[in-house]
Design a protein around this nucleic acid. Structure first.
Lengths: 267, 267
DNA sequence: AAAAAATACCTGTAATTACAAGTTTATTTC
DNA sequence: GAAATAAACTTGTAATTACAGGTATTTTTT
């Protein structure tokens, strides 16, 4: 087995094993080669092998037993079911028409935002594209968001009409980069002066803050988004189900959905 | 600093740091002592310190930046919505111990709360059991909620220790009434005087308000719950996945089982 | 005074060595 | 033959050493 230069050995090895597990070459509960065998195979020290195996253990791809060996974890339990929407899809089921107002499209150095850099898995780079938008439904402000993207993805969408199309849409339809997974984080917050202005609400109005990291194939992060929703315009609904998935006819895998629900005007 | 025998050094060190982070001695984004400082402090090698720090990094308690140091991650416990949980299950992933403080257990006539009556599918009846509780994690207030149940279900749980057991638990374990489905609604709101007092925060602090209707077999509503979460203690996370069910062996059809639900209310 | 270089400090990677402690299998002893 | 022992395997823990590479500050040069 040959390893490249420039990429950490332990990463190459864990990636190699990950491939083997995810492709099914190594099946469930199958024993991995021992640490000594692996270190001989790759001609690296046992410490490096252990570093690689620990990565897999942390990601719950393998489990290890002292005196026995390392084994492949049950793969099935990790996948979840739910829907991933972009903003226009969120609004598509309502009578409202979605649009956006582009406030800025700039390149920024995120030296003081290590959180974003780590979300986007940007090891050495600090430059990113920052996109600031107001989201409208029937020309009324519904949300305000800032999106950060690695330059690689940011340059792709440059020139496209972001007032008409979503990033999601451009990446998927124009460049065939599908967004496969998203991690949402929901909090409550208050509108500061700037955001209140954008959303046309009073300062200190409660807002829903949803942070989202979107990933494409291979769990590669594409963008990190911080979105403030007007609480009087939108709430989120989620169905959690303990019953079996009706389509698959399988066992008791919980179904879930995270769909926005729009409040009706009360005037 | 002295370390015991019999317990792995790296574990003792990671536990010590974990304590320091969870107790708040080390605050959010605060820099940890450098690896060299720690190895001197505990009189162990840097490898051992790194082993301990990696544990914390895996548990998402710290993040590390090459050339800068290690820092404390956002402290708030974040947990997934994916399964249907009760409060103690929500906290079980954290190191906190869940308990409740029962404020009131009364019977009420909900003549002015048609919303609740319709959620609970109570056609002609207007009487319901109302339960008011404060939810604690490590004896600190994390949430405040009010639960309304039809008399039929409410009388069942009367007499049980609601400070120790959740309604969920009592219904399922004592009466074999399983909660099969839940509908959550997430909003942002402000703490009023009363709730602020219960949660020990300032009035007008932003809170996450989660309304939930829980159903048993046959889509029969069992209780409606209005819960206010302290935003500084808990945030909600959700993973959304577009990928097909790997077990079903199907194609990449995005799962769209449920349509968004609309809020129709008149206040 | 501004730009470039040196430096001190930080985490990241990786080899080597040694021994501890589980698990299984083969061997010896009773 | 059954039980105890030894051997051969596995992963776990931990020290030591060395250098790479990122970051920030200070010093030197221009």
């Amino acid at each position: 087995m040959e390893l490249k230069e420039g990429i950490p050995l332990h990463k190459q090895i864990s990636d190699w094993l990950k491939d083997r597990i995810e492709s099914g070459t190594l099946k469930q509960d199958e024993k991995l080669p021992s640490e000594n065998e692996l270190s001989q195979k790759f001609d690296v020290s046992r410490v490096t092998i252990r570093r690689a195996l620990q990565t897999l253990e942390n990601e719950d791809l393998i489990y290890r037993c002292q005196g026995l060996g390392s084994f492949v974890t049950d793969q099935r339990s990790h996948h979840s079911f739910s829907i991933l929407n972009d903003f226009s899809e969120e609004l598509s089921d309502t009578s409202m028409t979605a649009s956006s107002k582009l406030l800025s499209f700039t390149q920024k150095e995120l030296t003081d935002r290590n959180d974003i850099l780590s979300y986007l898995d940007m090891q050495n780079k600090t430059h990113a594209v920052e996109i600031e938008r107001i989201r409208l439904g029937d020309n009324q402000p519904i949300a305000y968001d800032i999106t950060w993207m690695p330059i690689f993805y940011g340059q792709l969408i440059e020139g496209f009409d972001l007032e008409q199309y979503t990033i999601f849409h451009i990446l998927e339809k124009e460049f065939e980069i599908p967004i496969e997974r998203g991690c949402y984080r929901v909090e409550a917050t208050l509108a500061d002066e700037v955001i209140a202005g954008h959303l046309e609400v009073e300062p200190d109005t409660p807002l829903l803050l949803i942070n989202r990291i979107s990933y494409t194939i291979g769990d590669k992060p594409v963008y990190f988004q911080q979105r403030y929703y007007r609480n009087d315009k939108i709430v989120f609904e989620l169905m959690a189900d303990r019953r079996a998935n009706p389509t698959s006819g399988e066992g008791n895998i919980p179904l879930k959905e995270f769909a926005p629900v729009f409040k009706k005007e009360m005037e």
